[in-house]
Design a protein around this nucleic acid. Sequence first.
DNA 1: AGCATATGGTTGATATTGTCAACCATCTAG
DNA 2: CTAGATGGTTGACAATATCAACCATATGCT
Lengths: 144, 144
Amino acid sequence: MSSAGNALFGLLHAYKRVLRERYMAAGIILPLSHLRVLGEIGRHEGVMAREIAAALLQDKGLITRVTRELEREGLIERHPHPTDSRAAHLALSANGRALRERIKTIEKACDAQMVAALSTDQADAFIDTVNAMTEQLDREQETP
Amino acid sequence: MSSAGNALFGLLHAYKRVLRERYMAAGIILPLSHLRVLGEIGRHEGVMAREIAAALLQDKGLITRVTRELEREGLIERHPHPTDSRAAHLALSANGRALRERIKTIEKACDAQMVAALSTDQADAFIDTVNAMTEQLDREQETP
DNA sequence: AGCATATGGTTGATATTGTCAACCATCTAG
DNA sequence: CTAGATGGTTGACAATATCAACCATATGCT
């Protein structure tokens, strides 16, 4: 087989496909980016848009648009920041929380399928490895 | 930290960014998809478009467009298939081969950076793991 | 207080990537 | 020789990503 990079492309591609299929089967039609943002808000209720952008490594402009749609769908709520009137805290609405639960289940199933061929040790090691690699790649950034 | 899926998103995102930065620094302006196709043709000179689509898990329509541009750029050549007049064999031109060498170097450097924090054993195991996972995800396909 | 600068967020423009379906020409099997 | 499969092309479009300009507010400095 080819390089680590190519292998990664393949894996994420397959993963996204499976995710999308399962969401569709469950009648969830939002694009993955929206679901990822929703998940991030669920994991850290009250986050600011800036933090989501940082956590998901995405452009803040993208977050603006995605959160706007999620709000329009009635899935999240925007609460004013107590001391900084520019910022807002984002939180799930009741509907958002319900959807998030369904998403979590599906995501867990996908992850389970992905690591099905691995031992528990391998699976745990894998996540650590992935995170270590990501850090390593981000490191370069700081030394231009 | 979050799920395996999220970790993967982050890793590939970081990897793509580093790749793009290095290509840009080297004055290579083609999008990643084109470079990936170029690489695939380089690895298997004489492939058919169909095979590239399968190897990269991409839509055949995408391959059509990408190869057309690569041909227009004078990076690849299209040779008629001896027995099937619908198909064509794709191969690198002299320019394409030169570019491919530069790409290979850059890709290797990125891969090296990515696995820099890992032991050799870990790095090898990682690729195997990734491939195993990809297979596992693709397997589901056949049992709807 | 008054200023420069940084920051959270928004917007517009645009490039890249991925998906789906219809379609043509050819090939292959029966 | 016909029916269906296959390689490839095309069109339309959705999704994802990037960049830069911009507004309003906040913060640090003097």
